Each structure stands twice: as C-alpha cells, then as structure tokens.
Amino acid sequence: MDEKTRVVVVGGGIMGLSTAWALTRRGERPLVLERFARGHTRGASHGATRNVNNAYADPHYLDLLARAREGWDALGEPDGEPLLRLHGLVSHGSGAALGGTGGGLADIHAGLTSRGIPSELLDPAEAARRWTGMRFDGTVLHSPDAGVVRAAVAMRTLEQRITAAGGEVRWETPVEDVSQDADGVRIRTATGIVRAEVAVVTVGAWTARMLPGIALPPLRVTEESPAHFAPRHPSTAWPSFNHFVTPGSWPGNVYGMPSPGEGVKVGFHLVGDEVDPDARPFRTDVHAAALADYVAEWMPGLEPCTADPISCTYTSTPDEAFVLDRVGRIVVGAGFSGQGFKFAPGVGAVLADLAEDPSAQADPVFRLR
C-alpha cells in the first residue's frame, strides 16, 4: 500500500533540511528522504565549518543573504554558541569575484552598504597590519559581518527542529525515481512508494539523474581538494578570505577560513576534475603542489608543508547561478557551485515558497530557462 503525505523533500543535505525546516515554520510536517547515513561524506554538506562569504554585488544574492541571515538567527544558539562565527571576511585582488558576481571590490562595497551590511575599503598596508598572517593584492574589502557557519552543528540543529515540529527525516532511504501525474508526485524507494502533493528535490550531484524529464541547465560535478594548513603562531588572528587572482597566475580564485582544531582552510575555487558522484576517486593531489606554493607566497602565517587535504564536490551551472524553480508538482534546488551553504536558510525559504504556492517564483536569475 502506498504511503501518503503532503510534502516530501528528497535529499537530506543542508538544502533539503533547510527547506524542511522552513516548511515546518509554516505548519507543514514534511518527510525528508536521504539516500545516505547521517553525517556521510558523499555529498557537499559534511564538515565542521563552511565559509560565510558575503562579498556579492548582485541584488539577487544580497536578497538571498538577507533571508539566510534571518534563518541563521532564528536557529538561535543550540549549544550556547551562535551558529555563525563572525570573525570577518577580507577580499582582495583584481580578478573576477566568486560566483560570477559582477564588478569589483568597490561594487561589492556599494552593494553591501546599500543593504546596511558593514564593510570598509582598506589599503594593503593597513590590512597587513591587522592580519599579519596574510599578504594582500591591492585594495582590501573588509566585511566584519561574515566568517563561518558551524556546519555540522547546523545540520544537527535543523534535523532536531524538523522532528520537534512533527516532520520526519529518514536516513539510508534511497529514492529510485521521482515522477508526477495528475494526482501528485510518486516517489519510489527500495521499500515502497510514497505519494505526495508536491516534492522538493535537493540531491546535489545526483540532480540530473533524479530528474531526467526536467530541462535542467548542464550540471557539472567536480571533485575539489582544499586543505587545512597549520598556523605558524597560534595567536595569529585569521579572518575568512577571498583572493580574486589575476587569470592565469594560479589555477583559480582562492578562498579560505579558520577552522578551530583543524587549522586554516585554503582552496582554489572550481578547479577540480569532473567526476561521477557514484565513482568518485577521492583524489586530493591534483592541485596540491600549486596550493602549497600559493600558501608559501601569500600566507606567511601558515606552514605550507602541513597541508591536510580534503575531498569535496561542487555541482555547478555554467554561470554558477543556482537553480530554484518549480515544474508542475516538483520543486528543484540545485547547482550551488561550492558557495551555497551560507545561503541555505534563504534557499530553504525560497524552495518552501515554491512548494507552498504554485504561482510563486524565485528571482529570474535562478529560474529554469
């Protein structure tokens, strides 16, 4: 006999759990179906921390940041400490900003200022005086209202909020097929059929396989390999950071953040090899030498020989814009290009809008086209 519920969320990573939580805040009791076990490392939501990088000029990302911040604040202090550690973000360099953001640092500064988000432009000498572990490339944008989110704690807190509100998260429940007809959505699992009025699909690297009937943009899955490096001096203050490098000087733009107990994370953005998420090699050596060379040149406060590499995946659209849209009774969230975690409560709110109201629409940039 088919199981019936009103809303199913397929995928229990940060976007799926954020969506389910947003739905519970509207009185829904969603069912979340996740293929892997709690805390797995196959997707893109595991780990202790994620960057809270607000260096965006485009209004659609600034809108999403505002909705995300409301969500992070609403989650409170689950263990007596805020989920966001706002130790600040510094961005420098003349290359193109992350995420396809238009303009340079002055445009980002103007965009943040227009939203009341504090930021300041510094000369490189002043920045080097404040953050002695780094070198800087030209003008530096400092945003104190940024830093990291405690990712693992956030995942655990979201699940607790969902279940406390009457929702359910089923781990180790692979979904084999999602289809829709006049009566709703049919979700086929290894143990049976779940019928729902609407389904939200947030399965990251597996999106195209899960939704072959929906005209998605090309979703490229890559394996990225940032690393944690040990600071030379434990007392050195570290912000989160972006370096928008001159094209051709390094494999890609550089990002990073301090992660207590792990070191300082440094990585090239979107430079990894394309992979099959079900046959991922978990390689961490592709750009390891270049990353160590970068640290030696630009991060004098880190020991370049101490790299502890990480394997993670990105699922990216050609322009790095997210996919947030509804087709019939299926809502899809995908293509977060390694920059989605900080936006998760905002993304969840948008996907919940789409699930609740067939006439709702995300910003045009995020719609299927």
Results as ranks from 00 to 15, higher is better:
Ala292Phe: 14
Thr284Lys: 15
Thr5Glu: 06
Arg50Gln: 13
Gly93Pro: 01
Val10Arg: 05
Gly213Gln: 12
Glu224Asn: 08
Arg369Ser: 12
Gly47Ile: 03
Ala190Leu: 14
Pro82Ile: 11
Glu77Ser: 15
Leu368Asn: 11
Phe336Gln: 11
Ser114Ile: 13
Ala355Leu: 08
Phe136Pro: 04
Ala48Asp: 08
Thr163Glu: 14
Pro251Glu: 13
Gly252Glu: 06
Asp319Gly: 11
His87Asn: 12
Ala307Ser: 15
Met15Ser: 05
Leu75Ile: 08
Ala37Arg: 07
Pro234Gln: 14
Phe336Ile: 04
Arg26Leu: 09
Glu77Thr: 15
Thr113Lys: 11
Pro258Leu: 11
His46Trp: 11
Ala128Glu: 09
Val323Gln: 05
His228Glu: 07
Trp131Thr: 15
Leu105Lys: 00
Phe36Tyr: 10
Glu320Ile: 07
Thr189Tyr: 05
Val140Asp: 02
Gly138Met: 13
Thr284His: 15
Pro144Arg: 02
Arg130Asp: 09
Glu320Trp: 05
Trp298Cys: 12
Pro30Ser: 14
Asp63Arg: 12
Ser311Arg: 07
Phe229Ser: 15
Gly116Val: 07
Gly76Trp: 14
Leu302Asn: 07
Ala227Cys: 06
Ile162Pro: 00
Trp238Glu: 00
Gly138Ser: 12
Arg367Gly: 12
Asp357Ser: 13
Leu75Val: 06
Arg369Thr: 09
Arg220Thr: 12
Thr284Met: 14
Phe268Ser: 00
Arg170Trp: 02
Thr315Asp: 02
Val365Lys: 10
His228Gln: 10
Gln180Pro: 00
Ile108Leu: 02
Arg195Glu: 01
Leu112Thr: 02
Met1His: 09
Glu168Arg: 12
Glu197Cys: 03
Gly13Tyr: 01
Glu120Trp: 01
Ala110His: 14
Tyr61Asn: 14
Arg29Lys: 15
Arg232Trp: 03
